[in-house]
């Protein structure tokens, strides 16, 4: 099978791959997909991990291969890069809204790309209250912290800004 997809077409195909741990957003919205380099029939997909030890990277790589195979692309290299370091600022407002609807409080904007040493203010994704308290700095995955709303009392995940 021969593909007729151009770079944009390939990116569009890759946008159908959800993040394995937060399936409401795809790997492009999350900022994991960094680039697609097309040379003849050879496709190089550049990805970056959210956190250094993100255990989902192998899964994402195999999802990318499987998805491109479906579209007739077999000559694939998936390359992992650490630079520039992943930041939640790459997430679009639209993606953040999807997180909020899913019950995860989205990350705030970073200031000068530095993670603050004091805890940032976090909004409850359920009732919109700012009266929230950190339960644990580390949640169900590396990218999240565990919070509880002081108004509606619901516990929720906060996607840490980094």
């Amino acid at each position: 099978m021969v593909t007729t997809l151009d770079k944009e077409g390939i990116i569009e195909v890759l946008r159908s791959i959800p993040d394995p741990e937060i399936p409401v957003i795809n790997i492009d919205e999350l900022g994991i997909l960094r680039d697609v380099i097309l040379t003849g029939d050879h496709v190089e997909v550049v990805i970056t991990p959210t956190y250094s030890g993100c255990p989902a990277m192998t899964q994402i790589e195999s999802d990318i291969r499987a998805k491109l195979h479906e579209h007739g692309i077999d000559n694939i290299v998936v390359r992992m890069t650490y630079q520039p370091a992943w930041t939640t600022d790459w997430m679009s407002e639209e993606a953040k809204e999807k997180l909020r609807k899913y019950g995860i409080s989205p990350p705030g904007r970073m200031h000068n790309a530095i993670v603050p040493l004091v805890v940032d203010s976090v909004v409850c994704p359920h009732c919109g209250s700012f009266q929230t308290a950190v339960v644990s700095e580390f949640g169900s995955t590396a990218c999240k912290a565990l919070y509880q709303c002081q108004d509606c009392k619901e516990p929720f995940d906060y996607f840490k800004s980094i």
């Binding site: 956190y51 030890g53 590396a142």
Partner: peptide
């Protein structure tokens, strides 16, 4: 264990 994962990744 999350911190451990970060360290393993590095």
């Amino acid at each position: 264990t999350n911190i451990s994962l970060d360290l393993f990744g590095t």
